[in-house]
Design a protein around this nucleic acid. Structure first.
Lengths: 219, 219
DNA sequence: CTTGCTATGTATAAGGA
DNA sequence: TTCCTTATACATAGCAA
C-alpha cells in the first residue's frame, strides 16, 4: 500500500481483496519472471484465487520443473515403479510379496534417514541467524522454517500417494485373483457369487479395520 | 534496484548474480506469502537456482495445490487407471474396497485439515514473540518450531505405519485367495478375461479413482 | 469488475565493513 | 565471503472515474 501501511492478514472487504489480489498477483508474476531472467533460474508459480481460479507462470515448462522437483524431493519414482511393474505382469503372488517387502524396507529406511537428517540442524542454523537481529530472524523464519515444514509436508504427500497406490494395488490383486478363482472353479454369475459367500467379505473387512488402529509403538 | 536501474537480462557477473538471486528469491517468497495471506489464495512456488538447488513455498499444502493443478497426479492416473478398470463390481472384495476407500478418504481429510491448520499460524506466533527479544525467540524456537515439526513427523510416521499395514494386508489377501484358488481349481489363463471387458470398469473404477487422484482439470 | 493516479511503503543494487 | 547500509527504483493502498 501506499497511503498507509497494512498488516498482513486477510482483507475483509471483498472488493478490496479482489483488487489487491489482482495487483499483487501481477507484481508477483513479474518478480518471478525477473528473477528467472536475471539469475537464470527455473521457476514454477501456481496461484489459486479464493474463488478457485487458476493462474500460473513457469520459466520453462511446468512439466520440467515438476519433474525435477519430484526427483529431488525423493524417490517418488522408485516407490511407484516397482508397483507398476507388478501390476502389469502380476498374477504371480510370490513376486508381489517380494516386491512389497522390498518396497516397505526402502520406505522405512528412507523415512528414517530423512527424519533424522531434519533433526536439529536447521534449528541451529536458525538460532545462529537470530543473533544478527530481528529483521534477519524474520527472513530466516520465512526461509528455514517454511522450507523445513514444506519438506515434511511434501514427504507426507508422497506417503499418501504411495498409500493410495498400495490400496489400489491391493484391490487389483484381490480382484485379479478372484477372477482367476471364479473362472477356474466354474463360470458362475458374479452377482450370485457375491451374495452366496458373505464369509469372505467378513474376512476382508476385518483386515481392513485393523489398519486404522494398529500402532504397536511410538517412534 | 536502487543505485541505478538495471535491465532485465541475465546478470553476467557470477557473484552478483548469486547475490541477486538470494535477495530476490527472498523477496519473491515473501510476496507470495503476503498474497496468500491477504487474499486467501493458494500458492505453490518452486524455484531452482542455476546450480540446481531447490527452493519452494506453498501456502497450504503441496499436496492440495499439486492435486488441484493436476500435475503429479497425471502420471499416477495413467499408471493405475487401466489396471483398476476391471473391478469393484464383483464379489468379496467389494466390502474390502469400500473399507479401503473410506479409510483413504478419512486419511486425506485428516491430513488436509492438519496441514492447513499448521500453515502460517505458528509462524506468526513466532514472529510476534520475536519482538520481545532474542532470548524469548530462542525459547519460542524450541517450542513452536519443534512442536510443528514434531507434529509433521508424527503424521509421517502414521502414514508409514498405515502403509506397512496395507502391505501386510495385501500379502494376506493374496495368500488367502491363492489358497482358495489352489483348493478350488487349477489356474486358468486370466489375461484374456481381464482385457476383455473394459467397459464395466469405467463405471466401477470411478469409485476407486475418485478417492485418490482424479483431478482431470483445474477448477 | 477495471483502470489510473499518487503518496508511501518496500525491495534491492551498490558499496562498505 | 557474508552482513549491513543507503539511495533509489518499484510496488501498491486507497480513491476516483
Amino acid at each position: 500500500m501506499t497511503r498507509r501501511k497494512i498488516q498482513i492478514k486477510k482483507i475483509d472487504n471483498t472488493t478490496a481483496r479482489q483488487v489487491t489480489f489482482s495487483k499483487r498477483r501481477r507484481g508477483l508474476f513479474k518478480k518471478a519472471q525477473e528473477l528467472s531472467t536475471l539469475c537464470d533460474a527455473e521457476i514454477a508459480l501456481v496461484v489459486f484465487s479464493a474463488t478457485g481460479k487458476l493462474f500460473e507462470y513457469t520459466s520453462s515448462s511446468v512439466q520440467q520443473v515438476i519433474e525435477r522437483h519430484g526427483l529431488l524431493s525423493s524417490n517418488f519414482d522408485k516407490l511407484n515403479q516397482p508397483s507398476l511393474d507388478l501390476q502389469l505382469e502380476s498374477s504371480t503372488s510370490a513376486a508381489l510379496s517380494k516386491e512389497i517387502a522390498e518396497n516397505t524396507h526402502e520406505l522405512r529406511k528412507l523415512m528414517g534417514e530423512e527424519l533424522q537428517e531434519l533433526n536439529m540442524k536447521e534449528l541451529q542454523e536458525l538460532e545462529k541467524l537470530l543473533g544478527s537481529g530481528l529483521k534477519r530472524v524474520r527472513d530466516a523464519k520465512g526461509e528455514i522454517v517454511l522450507k523445513e515444514i514444506t519438506s515434511l509436508k511434501w514427504k507426507g504427500y508422497q506417503l499418501m500417494q504411495e498409500n493410495k497406490q498400495l490400496k489400489q494395488m491391493a484391490n487389483q490383486q484381490i480382484q485379479t485373483l478372484e477372477l482367476e478363482l471364479e473362472q477356474g472353479q466354474s463360470s458362475e454369475p458374479i452377482g450370485d457369487f457375491i451374495h452366496s459367500d458373505p464369509s469372505q467379505d467378513h474376512d476382508s473387512s476385518g483386515t481392513s479395520l485393523k489398519l486404522g488402529l494398529a500402532f504397536p509403538n511410538g517412534i
